[in-house]
Simulated scan of single mutants.
Amino acid sequence: MAHEAQVRYSKLVDLKLRATLVKKVGVICNNRYEGSPKAGSVKVPVRDTEVAVNDYNKQTGAELTGGDTTYLTVNIDKDKAVNEIIDGFDAASVPDDLVADRLDSAGYSLALQVDSDGSVELTTAGTAFGTTTALTEKTIYGNVVDARTKLSTVHVPTEGRWLLVSPEIYGLLLKSPEFIKASDLGDAVVQTGAVGRIAGFTVFEDSTLGEGVEYIAGHPNWFAFIDEWAVPVHVQDLNGSSKYIGASAVKGRKVYAFKVTKPQTILIKKKA
């Protein structure tokens, strides 16, 4: 029974983390890499050139061309843990509710931490875009259209483009007639955590972008996320320890890393 409970607890935390996390794999980032994160580093592919298309001749065939895919070594530099004591008397006072609440909180807190670390990588390794003049209701749509055009000039696919926006910018978008709310786009969009679409971007509200960042525009092809649980979140009985009597703890550990592989495909709009 204890094992079944631990499995249930881990699933609860994982579900909460996935539901809260803005930077979801396959939507905002990719997890294409070679090697094991537990080894301390992995190799992330960077598609430097696209496969060339040549004319075909029935007699001579087509000329051979070379491609260029390099691999970046990415160190797994994030190692985060939760380790919170739950007093036995407190837990007994509110049977399963206190434990469930702290597990829920663990999933929520870990998601915010992961999102924050992803934002740091994006803003550090991406490319500054436009001026530092704050966006307004009148200028926001034109600015986002300019970002769309900029990504097209560096051959970022139109399908899958995303826009991470601060809560303030999301507020401006809600007042923009060009903004299409997620509720009008169908369940598939809503399930990704999107709040809408504008100028070809799927929009996500992200409260972890950092001070002065209004939005970040990009595509999952060039933003890698390498993650793995080292120790799944669980409830551990502390009886038998030298200090705690009748207590337990919510414990868990996560190792991961983010990597922008092409700075020109990530645009950061900041205000002064």
Rank of each mutant, 00 (worst) to 15 (best):
A2N: 11
A5F: 11
A5Y: 06
Y9N: 01
Y9W: 05
L17F: 02
A19E: 08
T20G: 01
T20F: 01
K23F: 01
C29G: 06
C29V: 06
N30I: 07
R32V: 10
G40K: 09
K43T: 00
V44K: 00
D48G: 11
N54M: 13
Q59R: 12
L64E: 12
L64V: 13
T65H: 09
G66I: 08
D68N: 14
D68P: 01
L72C: 10
T73Q: 05
T73N: 07
V74E: 06
V74H: 02
N75V: 11
N75A: 12
N75E: 15
I76F: 04
V82L: 05
N83F: 11
N83W: 12
I86S: 01
I86V: 09
D87W: 05
F89C: 06
S93T: 07
D96N: 14
L98M: 11
A100D: 13
D101V: 07
L103Y: 03
D104A: 13
S109W: 07
L110P: 02
A111Q: 06
V114H: 00
V114Y: 00
D115P: 11
D115E: 12
D115Q: 12
S119K: 02
L122P: 03
L122S: 03
A125Y: 05
A125H: 07
A125R: 10
T127M: 04
A128F: 13
A128L: 12
A128S: 12
F129S: 04
T132I: 12
T133I: 09
L135M: 15
T136P: 05
Y141W: 08
Y141H: 11
N143R: 15
V145R: 10
D146Q: 15
L151D: 04
L151C: 12
S152C: 04
V156Q: 04
T158W: 08
R161G: 13
L163D: 00
L164N: 04
V165F: 02
V165Q: 02
S166A: 15
E168A: 15
Y170D: 08
L174H: 06
L174E: 12
F179E: 09
S183G: 08
S183K: 11
Q191E: 14
Q191S: 15
T192F: 04
G193C: 03
G193D: 02
G196P: 05
G196E: 07
R197S: 12
F201R: 05
F204T: 08
F204S: 08
E205D: 09
S207H: 08
T208Q: 13
L209D: 07
G212D: 14
E214P: 12
Y215C: 09
I216R: 05
I216Y: 05
G218R: 01
G218Y: 03
H219A: 13
W222A: 03
W222K: 03
A224Y: 00
F225N: 00
F225I: 02
H234D: 14
V235C: 06
V235R: 04
Q236D: 06
D237T: 02
N239K: 09
S242P: 01
K243S: 14
G246S: 07
S248Q: 03
S248C: 06
S248G: 04
A249F: 05
A249Q: 10
G252W: 00
F258H: 03
K259N: 04
V260R: 00
T261A: 06
K262H: 08
K262A: 08
T265P: 01
L267Y: 00
K269E: 08
K270Y: 09
K271L: 09
K271S: 12
A272S: 14
